Simulated scan of single mutants.
Amino acid sequence: MNNEKQKLSVLIITLNEEQHIQSLLEDIDFADEIIVVDSYSTDKTVSIVESFKNVKLIQNHFVDYTSQRNFALDQAKNSWILFVDADERLTPELKSEIVTAINTENKASAYFIYRIFMFKKSRLHFSGWQTDKIFRLFNKSKCRYNEERKVHEKLIVNGSISTLKNKIIHYSYSSYEDYKSKMYNYGILKANEKFKRGVKPYFLLLLLHPLYTFLYQFIIRFGFLDGSKGAIICYLNAYSVFIRYKELRRITSSRI
Results as ranks from 00 to 15, higher is better:
Leu11Gln: 02
Val99Ala: 09
Ala231Leu: 13
His125Asp: 06
Glu105Leu: 15
Leu90Ala: 05
Ser175Trp: 04
Lys7Val: 03
Glu4Val: 10
Tyr212Ala: 12
Thr66Glu: 05
Asp29Ala: 12
Tyr114Trp: 04
Phe222Pro: 00
Asp32Glu: 03
Leu137His: 08
Ser228Glu: 10
Phe119Gly: 02
Glu97His: 08
Ile21Glu: 00
Lys121Leu: 09
Lys107Val: 04
Phe242Arg: 09
Tyr173Gly: 01
Ser96Asn: 15
Lys121Ala: 11
Phe117His: 12
Ser172Leu: 14
Asn237Glu: 07
Val49Tyr: 01
Tyr171Thr: 03
Gly128Asn: 07
Ala76Asp: 01
Ile219Cys: 13
Leu25Cys: 04
Thr213Ser: 11
Lys107Asp: 02
Arg89Leu: 14
His61Ile: 12
Lys167Gln: 13
Ile220Val: 14
Asn60Val: 04
Lys53Ser: 15
Leu73Met: 12
Ser41Asn: 09
Leu57Tyr: 03
Leu24Glu: 00
Tyr235Asp: 00
Thr100Trp: 08
Ser181Met: 10
Arg136Thr: 02
Phe52Trp: 03
Lys53Gln: 14
Thr213Asp: 04
Leu137Arg: 10
Asp32Leu: 05
Leu124Cys: 12
Val10His: 02
Leu206Tyr: 13
Leu73Ala: 02
Asp85Val: 01
Tyr111Thr: 04
Val36Tyr: 02
Ile81Cys: 07
Arg244Ser: 04
Asn2Gln: 09
Ala191Tyr: 00
Ile161Val: 15
Gln68Asn: 08
Lys229Arg: 15
Ile134Met: 13
Ser253Thr: 07
Leu57Gln: 10
Tyr245Asn: 05
Glu247Asn: 09
Met183Val: 00
Glu50Ile: 00
Asp178Asn: 15
Leu24Ala: 06
Lys140His: 07
Ala72Leu: 07
Thr14Met: 02
Tyr65Met: 08
Tyr40Glu: 07
Gly230Trp: 04
Asn2Arg: 11
Asp226Thr: 06
Met183Tyr: 01
Ile21Phe: 05
Gly230Thr: 07
Glu33Gly: 03
Gln6Lys: 14
Phe222Arg: 13
Tyr216Cys: 07
Leu11Phe: 02
Ser109Trp: 03
Ser127Tyr: 03
Arg221Ala: 11
Met118Arg: 12
Gln6His: 10
Phe138Ala: 08
Val84Leu: 15
Leu24Met: 12
Tyr212Ile: 08
Phe71Gln: 05
Asn237Phe: 03
Ala86Val: 00
Leu248Lys: 00
Val99Pro: 02
Gly198Glu: 06
Ser127Leu: 06
Leu248Asn: 00
Arg115Glu: 12
Arg149Ala: 04
Gln75Cys: 14
Asn103Cys: 10
Leu211Trp: 08
Asn139Tyr: 01
Asn54Asp: 09
Ser172Ile: 08
Asn3Met: 14
Asn158His: 10
His170Asp: 06
Arg115Tyr: 06
Asn70Met: 06
Leu207Lys: 09
Ile243Gln: 01
Glu26Pro: 00
Ser96Thr: 14
Gly198Asn: 08
Leu90Ile: 02
Glu26Ala: 05
Gln19Ser: 11
Glu147Ser: 14
Ser39Asn: 12
Leu94Phe: 03
Pro210Ser: 12
Asn70Leu: 06
Tyr235Ser: 14
Cys143Pro: 01
Cys143Val: 04
Lys200Arg: 14
Arg136Leu: 12
Pro201Asp: 04
Phe112Lys: 11
Leu94Asn: 01
Lys196His: 12
